[in-house]
Amino acid sequence: MTTLEEPRADAAGSVPLSRRTVPFGARLAAAGLVLGAGANTLQAVLGQVVERPDEVADQIRVFNEHEVLFTTMHLAGTLAVPFMAIGFVAAAHLLARRARRTGWVAGTMLVVGMFGFLAVHVAEMIQLAAILDPEGEAAATYLHGMDGAPLLAVTFGLPFLIGAPLGLLVLCVGLLVVGARVPRWIPAAWLVFAVLDFTIGGVGPVDPHWLYLLGAVGLAHHVLRDGAAAWRKS
């Protein structure tokens, strides 16, 4: 964390130092927002190009026919998660300046959700490697059968399925209600994204992740504007 010291005059006219703590620098916050949302959106858009079959035999055929596409999609999705976590922590920090407990709750839930999300992506990368291996059909079938394993579902699946949507809901509603000096269209866009993404998904060819990316770019601009004053003094 970074501690900033700002002068403020007291009633007697002296200027003591007040301390504000930020989790990291404004540039890292902006980079996390844009890179995380950008890579996550890229994965979602590529996922619309070729549908992933349910059966392992069909997956092996389709994955080998579109090896570059699926490899790019999974790499983008996996690399996105750490940056997404940074971006969500940045947004929660802005909320915590006006509503400390709400910001901490939202940030904690989203970090837990990203832990589960990263584990899911790593598991998919391992399965993809097995599928693309000419002799990996048995391993791919085994990994595919582990999707419903109770221990893995509780350890990784539930943290994502509970932490991510609820954390986003708390974050967006909190930013809209308390007015944390963040343009209201940003949490509104993220709220619509969360509702669509965790319910019906894409509407025709339009993927809701574009709303996530739009809001992330807008929030990054807000964080960096006026020499990052919005980040330090929010």
Score class of each variant (00 low, 15 high):
A44D: 11
W190I: 03
A220L: 10
V56L: 08
A130P: 00
L110C: 04
V154Q: 04
I126N: 08
F115S: 09
F83Q: 02
L211P: 08
R101H: 05
F160I: 05
L94A: 14
T2S: 04
W185I: 10
R100L: 10
L17P: 05
L171P: 01
V203I: 15
R20L: 12
A194I: 12
W104S: 01
A123T: 12
G157W: 04
G116I: 13
A30F: 06
A44G: 09
A90W: 05
Q48C: 03
A230G: 08
G167R: 08
T3P: 02
E55C: 03
V68T: 14
A39P: 06
G13P: 05
A31F: 01
E51S: 14
P82A: 07
A26G: 09
E135R: 13
C172W: 03
A220V: 06
A180V: 11
F193C: 08
G103A: 08
G201S: 11
R97P: 06
G116V: 14
L161Y: 15
L214G: 08
A90E: 09
I200Q: 14
L169W: 04
L46D: 09
A99R: 10
E65P: 06
M146R: 15
A37R: 04
P159S: 04
S234Y: 06
A129Y: 07
A91D: 02
E55A: 15
H222Y: 11
W231H: 08
L118P: 10
G13M: 02
T78R: 05
P187G: 02
A189V: 09
V22S: 13
Q48Y: 07
V56Y: 03
P159Y: 01
D10L: 07
E67K: 10
V217W: 06
S18N: 07
G163A: 02
R100T: 10
L118A: 11
L151F: 14
I86L: 11
